[in-house]
Each structure stands twice: as C-alpha cells, then as structure tokens.
Design a protein around this nucleic acid. Sequence first.
DNA 1: GCCCTATGTTGACAGCGACCACTTAAGGTG
DNA 2: CACCTTAAGTGGTCGCTGTCAACATAGGGC
Lengths: 228, 228
Amino acid sequence: MAKDISTQELRPYHHGDLHRAIVEAALDVLSESQSTEFSLRELARRAGVSHNAPYKHFADKRELLAAVSAVGFELLAKRMAEATSELDSPRQRLAAMARAYVCGGVGNPALYRLMFGGFLGGQDESRPVIERTAAHAMKALIVSAISDGALGRRIADTEPTTRTIDGAILVFWSQMHGLTLLLVDRLVGPGDKMEELTENVLQAMLEGLVNSIPKVPEGVWVGPPLAG
Amino acid sequence: MAKDISTQELRPYHHGDLHRAIVEAALDVLSESQSTEFSLRELARRAGVSHNAPYKHFADKRELLAAVSAVGFELLAKRMAEATSELDSPRQRLAAMARAYVCGGVGNPALYRLMFGGFLGGQDESRPVIERTAAHAMKALIVSAISDGALGRRIADTEPTTRTIDGAILVFWSQMHGLTLLLVDRLVGPGDKMEELTENVLQAMLEGLVNSIPKVPEGVWVGPPLAG
DNA sequence: GCCCTATGTTGACAGCGACCACTTAAGGTG
DNA sequence: CACCTTAAGTGGTCGCTGTCAACATAGGGC
C-alpha cells in the first residue's frame, strides 16, 4: 500500500521512486499543457519534493525530456504491437499499425513532437539507448508486416532485398509521419476524420508500392542509427 | 547609407528599423543555435538596444516567433516558386517543388520546425495572417502542377473534382513533410542523399497516385484554415 | 555498530520574460 | 515658430527558472 500523503502522516524523507514520479508528472503536465516549457520545479512541487531533488535523478532538463520521450516510444511501440497482435493478414496488420501510429500522435501531439521533434540536442548520440531501442522495435513491426506480404506478395528479408524493404518502409513511415504531423498542426483536418484519412491514404500508398518501390541509394539508413 | 555603429559615431536614440533588425537577429540566432530557446534579451543585445526595446514591436516572445515563422514561409514559398519558374513540364515542376521543400527544411531544421511545429499556441487563429497567406501560396503552387498534369493527365480544378486534387495534395504534402522531418531528425539519412531520396520517393508516389488517388472524406480540409 | 553513499533539503546566483514609469525625438497643427 | 501628442527606447523591478554548492538524512554492506 502506498504511503498516503494526504493524511497527517508525514512523507518519509526518501520518496522511494522519485525517478518514476518525476517522469509521470512530466507526462501529466505535457499532456495537459501540450508544451515542453514546464519547469522542473513544478514537477518537483507535484511530486512533493524540494525544487532540487530531481537533479539527483536527471543531470538537467534535457535528460528528463529524453526520459519522457523514451516512455513515449515505449507507449507507441506497445500500442502498435497490441493493435496488430490478433491480426493475421499482413495488410491488416500494417493498416492497424498506421492507425495506431497516427492516433498516438494526434492523441498527444506534444509528446509526439518531443519524441520526433529534436528538442533533445536533436542530432547526435545524446538520445538514450532506450529511445532508440523502442524506435527499433517499432521498425521491426513494420518490417515484419511488409516482408510477410503487406504489399501483396512475400518479400524475403534477406540481405540482397533489404533495400527493397527499406524503400517500402521509407515510403510508409514518411507518409504516416507527415500525415500525423499535418493533422497535429491542423494543416489537415478535422482530427476526427483521422482514421478514415489514414486508411484512404494508406490504401493509395500501398497500391503505389505494389507497382513501384523507390530505390534507396547506397549508404542510406532508414530508422534510428544503430551505433552512437 | 546605413549608420556605422562600429565607428565612434553614436547610435541615434531611435534605431530606425528595429522590427526588422530583431527578426533578422532571431533568424541568425535560430540558424546558429538550431533552437528557439534564445532570449529576447540576446536579440536586443545583438541589435544594440536595451533589453526592453523589442517589446515596443512585439507583445511577447510568441509574437516574435510568429513573425520569424512568417518569414520562413515566405522564404520557402519563394524558393519553391523560383525552382519551378522556368520549368514547363508539370511533372518536373512538382519534382522541383519537392526538392525545394525538402532542402529548405533540411537546410534550416529549427526554422522548419518553428513554422510547422506548433510552438505558436499551436492550434488556433493566433498565427498571423501573413503566415497563412504564404502557406496558401505554397499550396497554390502544388495545385497548379497537379491540375496541369503532373500525374500524367490534366485534372480540371472545377468544384466536383477539387476533392481529387485535395487527395493528391494530401499524399504529396504529407509524404514530403514526413520525409523532410525524418531527414531532419536523422531517422533517415544521411542528409547528403536527400535529393536522390526525394526524387525516388516522389517517383514511387506519383506512380501510385496515377492509379489511385485517396478519397478525402466530406468536411476535410487540406491546407491552412482559411478563416480564423 | 559504523561508515558510505544515494537521496533529499536549503540557500544562493545569474538570466529570463514581462511589467512599470520615465525619457527622447519626430511629426503634425496652430 | 512653439506646442503637444505619441511612437520608440531606457532603466528598474518582480517572480520565476535552471543550475550549482553545502548540508542533512537514512538505509545497506562491512
């Protein structure tokens, strides 16, 4: 049973799991305010600790945001996995993934932007391993649906054809990524037509991919970089 | 002749065009730091005025960022227009637009994210008219290329088929938008293969669109909202 | 039982956005 | 020309922030 702070009982000197508490507070504030410009001090207040306690768990604000972003990737990967778990047809699995991806982004734009928006030093290896791991898990889901035949035929995932799959993933991912962000930014809308739009765009995209998968030039990667 | 601040000559009490100076300083800092987290005070310092002078031209930081974003849209629209001005083939014009769009984003990610990233109150009519105007100009370019036959046949831009064009624009725009952001965030790379990737993805996308343009459900808009 | 270390606290600092009252100069009006 | 209105710039201040440093606490291994 968790300690009940609201009663007379005094909070113990040590919180117990402040790391998690801070990240969850950040997720709450992020969802409520739809902005990453909250303060570490506010998170500390919400967790009922001093303004400096978070610094025992996060070197700075950037590191906290990175942790939040990692949770976002885990949530997204989990949603996509759940949405596809009971579907047999690769085509349906891909569609379910697309829906989960777009809905996830539209459902919490600020989190989605944090994950993909490059606030985190943006470029290099500063992003935590867990983030890249979740992103790779996500990519693996797409790979399996495509190689299993989402384009209407099986595509072997052996080395010579990997670039074919990368080409298909590139199209699929950038299409859904762009659609999500246009919806999030209300440059396309309204949001409640999201699922229908996703389905229709996906349909057109797949019909295109069946006939023509773009060439991915030598040296190009699709997905988060494997090594720092 | 501009006043030479660097010599002994004293700067006049009134700057002359502080509005422009501040916006340009912001563009400089944004390009250098690739972050919107610069301070108004630093811009004031760069412009050689007191920390509060900018507030005579911008109500708050958000308004300054909106002005910067508007300049970004103007630059992007101009680039796209220039890239297409001397091309006859609609297909080539669309490809040139795609290149200009992606290169523009990759060339200055922070500006691109500012424009599309919803920092600006994100949702509603808070974004200045000039921003939406530039965005509409951009859309008009795409419309013309598509209706002129970029998909291999002319498509009349008359009312009954407008939704066809919207469907095509939706695919084109979200595909390029997503590709740009994946490149910017280095989830696809390297950046110097950008143009080749753009061309190949566009090629596949167009072949798909020729056969199948997604349906845009009733009530959906594609492009910035017309009325506040 | 003792100390070590992870965790949490208090205090301090500079920098920030935003507001205020005050000053400057430029332009229109008589 | 003098006058006055007003846009534009200045300096001061407030509360808040991120971050650092010094100190307090407690829980676990020897």
